[in-house]
Design a binder for these strands. Sequence first.
DNA 1: CTCCATTGTGCAACTAGTTGCACAATGGAG
DNA 2: CTCCATTGTGCAACTAGTTGCACAATGGAG
Lengths: 186, 186
Amino acid sequence: MSLPHAILTALLERPSSGLELTRRFDMSIGYFWSATHQQIYRELGRLETQGHIRALPAEQPARGQKKAYEVLPAGRAELARWTAEAQDPKPLRDTLLLRLRAAAVVGTAGIEDDLRRHLTLHERQLAEYREIEARDFGPDRDTAQDRLRHLILRAGIDLETFWTGWLTHALEEFGRLPDASRPRGE
Amino acid sequence: MSLPHAILTALLERPSSGLELTRRFDMSIGYFWSATHQQIYRELGRLETQGHIRALPAEQPARGQKKAYEVLPAGRAELARWTAEAQDPKPLRDTLLLRLRAAAVVGTAGIEDDLRRHLTLHERQLAEYREIEARDFGPDRDTAQDRLRHLILRAGIDLETFWTGWLTHALEEFGRLPDASRPRGE
DNA sequence: CTCCATTGTGCAACTAGTTGCACAATGGAG
DNA sequence: CTCCATTGTGCAACTAGTTGCACAATGGAG
């Protein structure tokens, strides 16, 4: 039940059409809540019938025509309610760790390359976050809003730092695993 | 498509019944791939019809009766195939970060308590992982299997370290936010 | 003018995960 | 013996997310 709230947040930051939202999800909100354009359109429909958002008046809102939405007071209230609500952290589900555990049983053949690939991806993401930080968060931008957003970006940076560090360590370990002792059969 | 592979891994480590699997998911595999007992039973059924596992011979495998499964060669092969396969890291979806972003727009009221609660939960999890590390990974246990499992546990420890560190930092920031400047209205 | 790539919106079917139950076997308390 | 908590297995309905398309409008290339 988080996608509607992600959309409400994005629309409060700036009223947008479905496609604009999709782009913004790809660039910024999507760093911690990804969504496809199909999900977004579906949810926009729901939010509209619930009276949480409304289409901005426009001429001819037909298919293939930009239709921008803005948040109504009810939507803002719902977002505030949801934000303040206590929520448990959802348990981790990570395929890579699972695969490593499987590799401990069926053998590590093949997985090393993919670890390396993941490392590259995470390094790239980290670099991107660092650029954003350098660009958007100078010491001058220091309102409460800026600080909160910086905090969120920091989480992204720290997470990617964790992954790159851990993957580097993992690859070192793999290098040290004596070939003969690599798990394989029963 | 990871749950079946999580189950195959667990069953290779030790043949088990549905309930035993459920318990093991709560304790160990579940740290990075959680699943409910309903999911597990459903998947056991599928894996059995696919010929990846089979029920260990037992008298009277009726309802309410323990039924243990073991992995067949086809299942092991499938797990090895899946493990070696390249897979993209799935994009992050984190509610807490999303809520923080929402808070930057609708106000931070209420969220601070929950950050504190999350901090406690993550500290607890971290302590648990550290205990496991101290108990199960002495310098003596040093086969390739041990090293891989230790690596996985390390990921858990580092992740929880990230969260506790970041949450602590976030709460400090919140303390510094001048009440007056906390975002609220439009 | 015509075609075709691009932009924009959306439906339908599917897969994965969650929630809420149902019900059988077992063993100990009374 | 009877009841009831516990252990164990499972179905059904639902929610959330993914995949694969369809189709309308627009504008520039030819």
